[in-house]
């Protein structure tokens, strides 16, 4: 759905003769129906990347194709076939929410502008407020309205540039729920964010990006790659012998005893946990509860970003 190869954007710098490389040699491939997280700190080049992929600005080098259309060759077709939530929603504040949507529905050549506007106003719970000026909306509502605006022409690919940045947690949740709804419809979503939790929650795969692509993987694999997987066994009582029993198993990489818990590092909890449970029970332990210790993605992210050149 989205393919990029060697994608590069160089801007003229503030001082004469200098340049700023915002995006350097980016290669990525996003599958149909995938929610793809594009995670990077401020100034990483996320917005620049989205602008290039949506045919708003031209790449300095490299190529990209969206929905089979090549950037630089079928720009109008790209713009007609993607939806974009730009970094700032840019509503017409003096006009009603519905009027805002109708304008864009007509610009996108939607056959039934009023019907589409109604569909998305209802989907995002804004129908009751459709007659109010967009300027009177809360930040979260404006953001949902902006996402609705990007959906009117039913794009198969949706770009969301930091949809929850600057929102309070409540509003951010509303917006995230809205994205979740769209995800359920099988659309390809390219989600720029610097919110790890959000990427973790919504995305099938995450690219960590800072001018260059640092890595791409599923959220779970990203965690595992850096830390392995850790399973916590809650036992009524822990002693050195129990820890030794587990450590003796061939696939166990590391065992730590923490008051009434054993934290075990291993590769495949799905198949290896039962063997550990059997061994523990045989050794007389009371297994109360088994769970995976989820390392926060933030740890992974910070480590990757800090070691990136």
């Amino acid at each position: 759905m989205i393919e990029a190869d060697g994608l590069t954007k160089v801007f003229p710098g503030e001082a004469k003769g200098t340049t700023v490389t915002a995006v350097d040699n980016l290669a990525l491939s996003v599958e149909e129906g995938e929610v793809f997280g594009f995670l990077g700190p401020n100034g990483a080049g996320k917005t620049t990347t989205v602008r290039m992929l949506c045919a708003l600005i031209g790449p300095t080098a490299g190529r990209a194709a969206i929905n089979g259309y090549t950037v630089g060759q079928n720009d109008q077709a790209i713009r007609a076939s993607v939806g974009i939530l730009t970094e700032s929603p840019g509503m017409y504040d003096r006009l009603s929410a519905e009027r805002n949507l109708l304008i864009f529905a007509r610009l996108y050549g939607v056959p039934d502008p009023a019907g589409q506007a109604r569909k998305y106003l209802q989907l995002f719970g804004l129908w009751e407020r459709r007659g109010d000026p967009a300027g009177s909306f809360s930040k979260g509502m404006r953001q949902k309205l902006a996402i609705a605006r990007a959906m009117l022409h039913e794009p198969r690919v949706l770009f969301l540039d930091e949809p929850t940045s600057g929102l309070d947690p409540e509003a951010a949740r509303l917006v995230r729920d809205a994205i979740e709804q769209l995800k359920g419809e099988g659309r390809t979503i390219f989600l720029c964010t610097h919110n790890l939790d959000e990427a973790d929650r919504l995305c099938d795969r995450i690219a960590i990006f800072k001018t260059r692509l640092v890595t791409v993987d599923t959220p779970a694999a990203l965690r595992r790659r850096l830390f392995g997987r850790q399973v916590v066994f809650h036992l009524g009582r822990v002693d050195g012998a129990l820890a030794e029993t587990v450590r003796a198993l061939p696939f166990v990489q590391e065992v730590k005893a923490l008051d009434t818990k054993l934290v075990v590092r291993l590769d495949e909890p799905d198949t290896q946990n039962p063997a550990i449970v059997r061994a523990l029970v045989a050794a007389g332990a009371d297994v109360q509860f088994v769970g995976e210790l989820r390392r926060s993605l933030e740890d992974v992210y910070l480590q990757l970003i800090q070691t990136a050149p």
């Binding site: 949506c54 708003l56 109008q76 713009r79 007609a80 993607v82 974009i84 730009t86 970094e87 700032s88 929603p89 840019g90 509503m91 017409y92 504040d93 864009f104 610009l107 996108y108 050549g109 902006a146 605006r149 990007a150």
Partner: peptide
Amino acid sequence: GEKTTRSLEPLLATPIT
């Protein structure tokens, strides 16, 4: 006005030339 409210970018993202 559109420049300061940043509403030109969504407009430019549509198929309008």
